[in-house]
Design a protein around this nucleic acid. Sequence first.
DNA 1: CTGCATCCGAAGTGATACTG
DNA 2: CAGTATCACTTCGGATGCAG
Lengths: 131, 131
Amino acid sequence: MAVSEVSLVERARATADGATMCPQRGALEHITSRWGTLVLIALLDRSYRFGELRREIGRVSEKMLTQTLQTLERDGIVHRDAKPVIPPHVDYSLTPLGREAAEQVRALATWTAERMTAIEKAREEYDAAKG
Amino acid sequence: MAVSEVSLVERARATADGATMCPQRGALEHITSRWGTLVLIALLDRSYRFGELRREIGRVSEKMLTQTLQTLERDGIVHRDAKPVIPPHVDYSLTPLGREAAEQVRALATWTAERMTAIEKAREEYDAAKG
DNA sequence: CTGCATCCGAAGTGATACTG
DNA sequence: CAGTATCACTTCGGATGCAG
C-alpha cells in the first residue's frame, strides 16, 4: 500500500493531540463540503458569474456561496476574475488544480447517482427492520 | 456529456422548491461527511470493532461515531455484525456497495495528500496578497 | 464493550438590509 | 452586480451518566 493511502487517518490522529487539525483534512473538507461539491461540478462545465452560479445551484444563500468560493479560491481550486467595470463583473472558473479535484468529486457524485436505487432499497430495508 | 454528470446540480434545483432535498444529496453528504470519510478509509483496510475504530480515527466522540456508522449502515454502505455475547462484540465492515464508495473517497483523499504542497502554496500566496 | 439519552456551548446556516 | 454585516435560528459535537 502506498504511503499516501493511509496518511489521512494517520495524520488525523497524529495531529489530534491538542494541535491544529492537519491542513489536509481542511482542504478535503472544503472540497467535499455541502456547497463545495456543487460549485465544483457546476464549474467543470464552464465558468460562471456569481449570480449565475447562485441560480444554477439553487437554494444557496449569498453568504454561503461567497464563503465557499473564497475558501476554494484560497486553496487554489477556483480562479476569481474580477473585471473592473461598473456594474461589477466577476467570473469564477476552475484552476488546473481545481479541475483535477472537481473530476474526482464528479466521479463520486456520478457513482452516487448510479447507485441511488441500491441505496434507497437499503434504506427501506433498514427502516422496515428497525424503524 | 452523460446524463448523470449533471443530474446532481439539476436535481438539487429541481427539488429546491420547498420539497425535501433529493436523496442523492443526502447520500453523498453522508459519505463525504467529516467522520464518514475517515470511517470509510479505515474500513477499506479491514473490519473494525467500535472502540478500535474510535481509537484508529482519534478525536471522535462516541456519539458522532455511532451516528456516522448508523447513517452509513442505513445507506447500505457499512455492515454491522453484532455478536450476541457478553460483553458485546460488534464488527463493522464495508458492504460491496460501500467498498466502491470508499475507493472513490480514498482516491480523493490520496489526491489531496499528493497536492497538499500546491494547496499550501496557494494559501500562502492568497494570504500574502490579501491578509 | 457498545450504544443511548440528555444537556449545553460552539459553530454553521440563512434572511435581511446595506455598501461599493 | 457582487459582496459585506448583522442577527436569529438551527445543527453539530463533546461530556457525562446510564443501560443492555
